[in-house]
Amino acid sequence: MNRRNLLIGGTAALVLAGAGGVAWRQSVGSMRAYADYARRLRAKPTPSPDIGELIRYAALAANGHNTQPWRFGIEDGGIALFPDEARRTPVVDPDDHHLFVSLGCAVETLAIAAQATGRPGEVVVEPGDGSAVRFDFSAGPARADPLFDAIPLRQSTRVDYDGRAVPPADLAALERAAAEPGVRMILVTERSRMNQLRDLVVAGNDAQMTDPAFMAELKHWLRFNPRSAIASGDGLFSACTGNPVLPAFLGGPAFDIFLTARTENDRYARQIDSSAGLAIFVADRADTGHWIRVGRACQRFALTATSLGLKHAFVNQPVEVARLRPELAERVGEAGKRPNIVMRFGYGPLMPFSPRRPAEAVIA
């Protein structure tokens, strides 16, 4: 669930873009092609979708670094979701915590889409049999659900929000949506408490950006232009964070030169200051089954926020830097527990949607 922004200042961006020559002046057309590609990815399923269509929708779920670390196995009476070991992020996620949270997000999206299109079922966590989680189909009618309508609209919006407060009724709806056995979601909207958590995010970001292994892993998943994003169908596309698109041969050097701890720390502090609140997810136990449950709760939170006109983004640095977890847990009243996810939320702009691989690429 970790996200990072490529920072290129205005003057520097112009210099680098100019070095790309005349060919790169076609970037506007490339972004139009990318917008068409993103719309096709998020087209609503037909009224009676086949399994492939349901999997395409499930793969729109939130996931770490947009690696889409899942495989879907079509089985008699259900669909099994497996970790895709080739898409692990071992530096930022050495114990696969984010990977299993991502699987939880995907299976929850699958369950919502299946119920809304007349193929209801049950999520079954089976960590001991080689698969992480299954969705078993049952009989039943289609049932309208605003979360289904929110699936193609949900995005991690990694820019400044407008600072407006969220009405109490909508905060209550977010709390209800995140209810999950074995998981607690703590909402923080008081500015003084948000400032304390902001400082932990900045401390975690500073630690990560001075780690060469972290920076190398992050760079591997960055996509600097529409063509690269469409070709890979994964990763962190710079336009999704409001940053310039660059030719591949300039993107890497720009990352090395202009992405600094100081500018990133300032950006994260500003973004949290612009948010209406923070949501922290904590599970009862640190095991794969509970991490999947966290993902399910997290996805319902994100889809409910989307249905309410809210944006969200992950700020997981104090979860990912192990030495900061105890302080984070204490700050939210969960001393002794391992925090799992930190999200900010508020009112913000619509940004380009992230890429996704086609269904056939994720079916085992």
Rank of each mutant, 00 (worst) to 15 (best):
V183E: 04
Q208E: 14
L308M: 07
H220T: 13
R3G: 08
S138V: 12
A80I: 05
T189Q: 03
D149G: 00
M215Y: 06
P141C: 02
V91H: 08
Q208F: 10
L60I: 09
A132E: 01
F237E: 12
S228C: 13
V91M: 06
A111G: 05
M31I: 01
V123R: 01
P339R: 03
N205Y: 08
N243T: 14
S102V: 06
G52L: 11
Y268A: 15
A43L: 13
N195G: 13
A19D: 09
T263G: 11
P49G: 09
E122H: 02
T67H: 04
A361F: 09
P69L: 01
V342G: 02
E334G: 10
L81N: 03
L197P: 08
P83E: 11
F148Y: 15
P339V: 05
F135R: 04
H65E: 09
I292H: 02
Q155A: 14
V92S: 12
A261H: 08
R296Y: 02
N5H: 10
T210C: 14
L324I: 04
P247D: 01
V201M: 14
V321H: 02
A62F: 05
D96L: 10
R25E: 11
R293G: 05
T46M: 13
I151C: 06
R338A: 11
G182M: 02
G77D: 07
K219W: 06
R323I: 05
H97D: 05
P49Q: 06
A248N: 11
V166P: 00
T241I: 14
I151T: 06
P352F: 07
A144V: 00
L259A: 09
R227Y: 10
G118P: 01
R88I: 11
I272P: 07
